[in-house]
Design a protein around this nucleic acid. Structure first.
Lengths: 220, 220
DNA sequence: ATCTCCTCTTTGAGTAGTCAAAGTCATTGT
DNA sequence: ACAATGACTTTGACTACTCAAAGAGGAGAT
């Protein structure tokens, strides 16, 4: 069985790979930063993961999950995201706090309990942040989404996913009403002022480009 | 924060202390057996716990929880038992399998989640096996109960608690209908044949003394 | 009174994960 | 072309937990 630590490395590696999009290798520095360990620690760990055939490692270049590693990572992610939704839907916790909780629970939940939660939640497709929940078989749907910063002014879009788990950011979004499912109209975009102006249900909201880039949308 | 390992030692020590009843020290051998580690490992660990003022340790005699250690143990036990009940009541798991699940979850649940579960379950007093759930403040009610093996033939009693978490034993009890809350009449007791005959709702059941001793009852 | 046995403790060693700091390598700028 | 820079790897060391095996202590049997 994979230890909690191994599960975390694989999960983080999966997320970094996604962030890189293309088939590139994840540089060690990124992985080390994501895991908040020193680079030496990441190197040591990755060598062990490569030994176990969970990753392919190119020294001084980077690292990538093998199929086996990816399956394991997706299983961890499935637990994480189902737990998050469960905490919100069943226990009534706030959107902004479930990520931290799930970070621990994802390693302690058996498959049996996981499938019960899945059934109780009626086999949901996405977690409270709009992130897709991998299936038990390890499949994820990941539609290509644009960010709110890329939407042409004058058009509107539906928020589908938040690409940041920071509690403070999520609390801001909830207060602003910028939650998955909500329809927003983009009014103006100003690269110089680093701003995007949107309108939701009549109310205007101004966001920095960096914040808008963390809000993924489907265009109408 | 106490590690998972430390939490388990404290919890097990609490349970062993209870089993001993009197104020005696728990011998190292018992603790080592309960933790399924070698005696040397238990000695090492107990010395570390004593250093942290969680236990009082008398070399070659035994070990006992300090007040601080007991509070921590009760907090772990509270998590364990609330989780068990939650798994049965909310996720519909079987009585016999929740102990194992809770064994892992008890270390991953935050206070916030715990209190939500407590509220959702309407502040229960006992877990699915009839074991009392300590309060958040660390109080436990432990009424003096007799075992089914001690009940006088001719009288009847109500099952209140099962002092064994073995899945196979619990499955047997469920099939036999010997679950907490059930009223049984004791018909005969035979020390020589090592048997207790009971009747529940008309049906007769015969148990060995050892099994009957693991069923705690309130007498009518 | 002492021998025996069993229980407990000590010692030496190993695994998993981590860091600090020294060493190596490739790229980048001149 | 080559020195400087920054990213990565290596090395040595530490913590937490564990076991196997050798050593010590005490309680009962003779």
């Amino acid at each position: 069985m994979a230890s909690t630590t191994v599960e975390n490395y694989l999960k983080q590696l999966y997320l970094e790979q996604q962030a890189l999009a293309g088939g590139e290798l994840v540089p060690m520095g990124r992985l080390a930063a994501a895991m908040t360990v020193t680079p030496g620690t990441a190197t040591t760990m990755v060598k062990a993961l490569a030994e176990a055939n969970l990753v392919a490692y190119e020294p001084r270049t980077g690292v990538r999950l093998t199929r086996a590693g990816e399956q394991l990572a997706l299983h961890v992610l499935r637990r994480h995201r189902l737990v998050e939704l469960f905490l919100v839907e069943v226990l009534g916790l706030d959107w902004s706090e479930v990520h931290e909780e799930a970070e621990h629970l994802e390693h302690a939940i058996s498959d049996k309990v996981l499938e019960r939660m899945d059934a109780l939640l009626n086999y949901p497709a996405v977690d409270p942040h709009g992130d897709p929940i991998p299936t038990a078989k390890g499949k994820v749907s990941s539609p290509r989404l644009r960010t709110l910063a890329q939407v042409e002014p004058g058009t509107s879009a539906r928020i589908s996913r938040i690409a940041d788990q920071e509690a403070a950011f999520l609390q801001f979004l909830r207060r602003a009403g910028l939650t998955p499912g909500v329809e927003v109209g983009v009014e103006a975009r100003d690269a110089q002022a680093d701003q995007v102006k949107v309108r939701l249900g009549g109310k205007p909201v101004t966001l920095g480009t960096a914040a808008a880039a963390k809000i993924l949308v489907e265009e109408a």
